[in-house]
Amino acid sequence: MADSPEAIRKSIRKYLIVGGILFLGTVLTVLVATVPALDIGRHGFDVYDCVLGLAIASTKAGFVAVVFMHLNDEKKAIYWIFGGALVFGAFLYLLTAWAKSDLIHDPLFYGDSKPNIKLGH
């Protein structure tokens, strides 16, 4: 990471630009979600909106991580630690999602709120 005073002075501009990008990204997400003319896919929320929204959010998150958290220039150990967490976090989500989608029965089978139980005689 840039530690010398000159390098820090230089990077201040960079921080401002990233801040601006984050603002714009936020505005963009809200516009896409609220202005009918910018609505992609079907009317209202659908999978396209979801992908677009998450893509913008991920980009923003990437900027924060890379620039504000200095991941653009970090030590190897840090990449291992944080990367490890991301990998195992992905395992947690993906394998659970897989397990929950590969079922031997219909999950909505028990979905009705009136239980099919006869009480008494």
């Binding site: 195992f88 395992f91 394998l95 897989w98 397990a99 590969d102 079922l103 031997i104 029965h105």
Partner: peptide, 18 residues
């Protein structure tokens, strides 16, 4: 050890592939 956990859950109706 992070990717074996569901062997505790074979009886929960998990499908054959997973």
């Amino acid at each position: 050890s992070f990717i074996v956990w569901a062997h505790h859950m074979y009886m929960t109706g998990m499908g054959p592939v997973i």
